[in-house]
Simulated assay, not measured.
Amino acid sequence: MTAGRRRALIVGVLAVALLAVAGVAYAGRAGWIPGNAAAGDQYRLANPVPPSGGAATPGGTGGLGASPETTGSPDASSTSTSAPAPSPAPPPEVTRPGEDSTGVPDGVTLTAYTGPLRITQAGTVIDGKRIDGCLDVRARDVVIKRSKLTCGGIMLKIEQRTANLTIEDSDLDGAQTGFVAGYWNYTLSRVDVYNIEEGPRVGSNVIIADSWFHSMHPAQSDEAHQDLMQTNGGSNSTIRGNVFDATSTVAGVSFNAAFQVGAEFEPLENVLVEENWFNGGGYTVNIRNDPQISNVLFRNNVFGPRHGYGEVSRADSPGIIWEDSNVSEADRKPVW
């Protein structure tokens, strides 16, 4: 064999070998080698929507990253086997305290209270009394129960932030000009409150529960902004299971709010307002746009039909947590 023919044979063999190697490499990338159909899939990002066609099938409609399979025409919507989302649970019914569950219990005979209206003795208990006059509480751990207090001024004046006053199962008659209490460390429980110009002031460490506030009387002033309940700041208070009916029986008279919420005097924080029935006012719950409000939660409250402008103002204010469980009595739909 001549040298020229030997060189031509070597070149031919090398060319065939190079073509074979290139074909194998291309076949491997394309998935043409038996047993290697999923080559490269381990490097793909998982599709957040699981494919409907099962295992990956090159060229098919059910592989990784593919759209869910459809049936019928190309425009048909995809089928789904997932169960429908459950309907949200209806808000709980609100128990409305009233004549049968608040105030002096049936069968209690009241006798005249002859003690001091300024209370300075810690642990004083007033039980089954008819109190004619306003109380000025300047002692700790005073309890008033199964009694009726009639006062046309500040009905319960709490001088000390540490008073820890409790009023339960009692009537508070404002004699058409009174307002209930202010401002700190007191509890009202199962109390019937009526004939008032203003309701309780809520400061710090206040509990108002299972009570009935109604029959507001118009103030003798055109500039009055009457509220059935009001807070101007404070912390750690709970308002639960009450009726606040800020309506008037006098034609043409309306009141500012059933609950006026703000932080004018000090920060307002950590307040729970739940399972109450609110009615009346311009805005039934009127929230000021004060910056120092935090963690004030409204939930499971029901709103009656009466209001001038709406059930609530500024429910999306910073620091206000307003849940969808606050509903209108008329249609049980969320308020706001």
Rank of each mutant, 00 (worst) to 15 (best):
L117D: 04
A139M: 06
R138L: 05
L165Q: 06
D100S: 10
D136M: 12
D132E: 13
G133V: 04
S80F: 13
S170E: 02
T177P: 10
P68S: 02
P97W: 09
S73H: 08
S77N: 13
S67R: 14
Y113K: 04
T111F: 00
E93A: 15
I158C: 11
G103F: 05
T102G: 03
M155E: 03
L64W: 04
Q121A: 15
T120F: 07
V108E: 08
D173W: 08
L135W: 06
P97R: 11
Q121T: 04
D141Q: 04
S80N: 09
P116H: 05
P105A: 06
R96K: 07
L135D: 10
G153K: 13
V108S: 03
R138W: 08
T102Q: 02
A89H: 07
C151M: 02
P68M: 03
V143L: 15
G62V: 00
S101N: 06
S87G: 05
K157C: 14
L165F: 03
T71P: 04
S77I: 11
T102Y: 01
Q176F: 15
T120V: 12
R146K: 14
S78E: 14
G103S: 01
I131E: 07
T114N: 11
G178S: 01
P105T: 02
G107R: 13
D127H: 08
P97F: 02
F179G: 10
G60L: 01
D75C: 11
C151K: 03
I158L: 15
D173G: 14
L156P: 11
A85E: 09
P86D: 06
G128W: 00
Y113S: 06
K129F: 00
E99D: 13
D141N: 13
R130V: 07
E168W: 12
G133I: 01
D169Q: 03
Q176V: 14
T61P: 12
Q121G: 08
L110F: 07
G123F: 14
T162C: 00
M155R: 08
P97S: 05
L135M: 00
S78I: 15
G65I: 11
A66K: 10
E99H: 15
R146N: 14
S80W: 14
R118W: 03
G174P: 07
P58S: 03
V125K: 00
T114K: 13
Q121W: 03
S80Y: 09
P116W: 13
